[in-house]
Amino acid sequence: MTTRHQALIAALPKVELHLHIEGSLEPEMMFELARRNGVTLPYASVDDIRAAYRFENLQSFLDLYYAGAGVLIEERDFYDLTWAYLRRAQTDNIVHCEIFFDPQTHTGRGIPFATVYRGIRRALDQAKAELGISSKLILSFLRHLSEEDGLQTLEAARPFLAGIDGVGLDSSERGNPPAKFARLFAECKTLGLPRVAHAGEEGPADYIREALDVLDVCRIDHGVRILEDSELVARLARSRTPLTVCPYSNVRLKVCDTLEQHPLRELLAAGLCATINSDDPAYFGGYLQENWLGTTHALKLERTEIVQLAINAFEASWLDAADKAMHIAACRRIAATFPD
Rank of each mutant, 00 (worst) to 15 (best):
P27E: 10
L25R: 10
P13F: 00
F55V: 00
D63M: 05
V95W: 08
R158W: 00
P339I: 00
L142K: 00
A34G: 09
T275M: 03
L142P: 05
R225Q: 10
L215V: 06
G68V: 02
R183C: 08
D257N: 13
M29T: 06
L17I: 06
L131Y: 13
S135F: 07
G285W: 04
I73W: 05
P339E: 00
R183V: 14
A51D: 12
D149P: 01
S230I: 11
R238I: 00
L299D: 02
R87K: 15
I328T: 12
D92L: 00
A330W: 08
A69W: 03
P242S: 07
L212F: 07
A269T: 06
K300M: 11
Y79R: 11
R238A: 10
L17Y: 10
A114F: 04
S230V: 13
G166V: 06
V307K: 04
L17A: 07
A11P: 07
L58V: 07
L86S: 14
S134P: 06
K180Q: 15
I120M: 02
A51F: 01
L215W: 09
R50A: 03
A270P: 09
G286H: 03
P103Q: 03
R265C: 01
G38K: 07
C273D: 06
L41H: 05
G38W: 01
F338A: 02
S230F: 10
A34I: 13
L301S: 05
L232M: 08
I138N: 08
L161P: 12
L232E: 10
D279W: 00
E98T: 07
E201H: 06
E98C: 04
L319N: 12
Y43S: 08
Q308E: 11
L145I: 12
G70Y: 02
G168H: 04
A129Y: 03
G132I: 14
